[in-house]
């Protein structure tokens, strides 16, 4: 078990290293283009280009360039953006992290609980009108694009009905730090949470339902019923518990991807200055250092999430535990 965890951690470090190398190569070693021009941004002056070449060691061999880049990213953390003159990239990303985490963790809680309830009810009542209604609603949820749903929510809560009793509490778009005003933090985020979770509740509900229905066909479910325990216990202790594996896998990956910048559309729509929004802006201005930092940050979260999924798997399924 300890060996397995250590091995996983080692693998993780290796993957991270690999990603950083690949990302580096894409930006710095693509043939036929000058990386300094891209780092310096559009319409940069000759001096700036010179300075960039010197700062990033672009006149030196690739491994040195890589080492310098990593040093700027992780050790001195003084990578600066040239598009937004002098903006330090790393602190900007660090500032964006709590915003993204707030958004994604809140939404994740909602969609986990929602997905669990929807999947469980639909799976247990397979074929009934309740099942069919839930599946229809969740299909609708899955089909609605986040940006559209977000804009509709904004339209309703920010303009059309903002003055009605129902939505007068909704603050203007943007983020309120938890430390400063917990209630304000909650009020600012609750609508983005619901919007982001809507898509995933449907998705998770459907996946759990399918997995539950499959599990409920298994011999051990018949065995559990033959033991004379109530149907609720059969469903929860034997059915759901065994079905959770697919659910957890998906959750880990989605969570990692969202924290890593995948919540971009939600962040843009609700004016949250999170990592996704940062990436979005950086892409629009071709701010290479910023893109570099956010991509590395994103990969870190995805890999991290993978690791957590593996660990949770080990706890959920004794067979996985032994397979290491």
């Amino acid at each position: 078990m300890i060996y397995a965890l250590a091995a996983r951690l080692g693998q993780m470090a290796l993957v991270m290293f690999g990603i950083s190398v690949v990302v580096f190569l894409i930006f710095f070693a693509t043939p036929g283009s000058d990386p300094s021009a891209r780092i310096a941004g559009r319409n940069a002056s000759q001096e700036t280009l010179q300075q960039v070449r010197h700062d990033f060691g672009l006149d030196r061999p690739l491994p040195v360039q890589y080492a310098l880049m990593m040093k700027k990213l992780f050790v001195t953390r003084d990578l600066t953006s040239f598009v937004n003159r002098g903006q330090k990239v790393i602190p900007t990303v660090t500032r964006a992290i709590p915003i993204t985490l707030s958004l994604v963790i809140g939404a994740a809680l909602l969609w986990l609980i929602g997905g669990l309830i929807v999947g469980l009810i639909a799976g247990a009542t397979k074929g009934s009108w309740l099942d069919r209604t839930l599946m229809m609603i969740s299909l609708a949820g899955v089909s609605m694009p986040v940006f559209w749903l977000g804009e509709v929510a904004n339209l309703i809560t920010q303009s059309r009905f903002h003055d009605s009793w129902a939505f007068s509490w909704v603050p203007a778009l943007g983020y309120v730090p938890f430390g400063r005003d917990p209630l304000g933090w909650f009020q600012a985020l609750v609508i983005p949470w619901i919007v982001l979770a809507t898509l995933y509740v449907g998705l998770y509900g459907r996946v759990l339902r399918a997995s539950l229905i499959e599990t409920m066909q298994e011999d051990f479910i018949r065995m559990a019923r033959a033991k004379g325990i109530g149907e609720r216990q059969v469903l929860l202790r034997h059915g759901l518990r065994t079905s959770l594996v697919a659910f957890v896998t998906m959750f880990g990956l989605d969570f990692g991807a969202l924290v890593g910048g995948g919540a971009l559309l939600t962040e843009v729509v609700f004016g949250l200055q999170g990592v996704g929004k940062l990436t979005y802006d950086a892409l629009q201005t071709l701010d290479l250092p910023m893109i570099m930092a956010t991509v590395i940050y994103a990969s870190f979260f995805v890999v991290m999430a993978n690791f957590v999924v593996d660990v949770v798997h080990m706890f959920l399924d004794p067979r996985v535990r032994d397979a290491f």
Partner: peptide, 13 residues
Amino acid sequence: IFQDPMTSLTPVH
């Protein structure tokens, strides 16, 4: 008791 002891026990308990 059922035919296949491989599948008649819940794997996670």
